[in-house]
Amino acid sequence: MNGPTFTIDGRSVPFTEGQSIIQAAREAGIYIPHLCYHPEFRPHGSCRLCVVEAGGRSVPACSTPAVAGQQVRNRTERLDRMRRTLVELLFVEGNHFCPACPKSGNCKLQAVGYWLRMLDTPFPYLFPRRELDASHHDVLLDRDRCIFCELCVRASREVDRKNLFAIGGKGTRCRLLVNSPDGRLGSSGLSLGDRALQVCPTGALLPRKGAFHVPVGRRLYDGRSIAESDE
């Protein structure tokens, strides 16, 4: 091997200068869990699921450059336990009712929960009251399912060039805001082909037609884990 390499859990991983740890890992077929990271967009570093141990520190793999010779630890009991806790916290701070969600089986939050063997949570559910927006003919905005990854914010700004979304408020009052005259999706100019809609990892932004059209068994994460089907 001619180029620089580093290791993840003892496995040698090649990389090119400027690549992040997660970019190099993905090219080498190594899964590092993540929710706010998407290869099309600049790293956000907010979900903290991709945190790995490198150089004696815990660092986000999405925004940390790979360094030649570095030894990175990804799958440790401690890291997975912390990741599981983070996912549990995401579940309790929103209202995620997987059984009736059209995104079930295609949802990254659900899939990463399964991958981390999350069975329940010790944290109390907060049951925040969040407004559902069904004003758009083709797209539902269900804020109950939003995890504030800002992928729609970035996609709408950088790809769709519409700048339709932003996160407002703090703590339990955090909300996905719609940049439209009345603050609702129906008047926003969002269309079904928008990247912002497609990159939502949960069912927060969801096409209304097509719910449950993919049969059980053929959904993205049916029969394979998120590690095997990560995009």
Binding site: F97, P99, A100, C101, P102, L132, A134, L140, D142, R208, A211, F212
Partner: peptide, 10 residues
Amino acid sequence: GRPCEEVPIL
């Protein structure tokens, strides 16, 4: 208050 398309599954 839930979208009707979810109701049968719910």
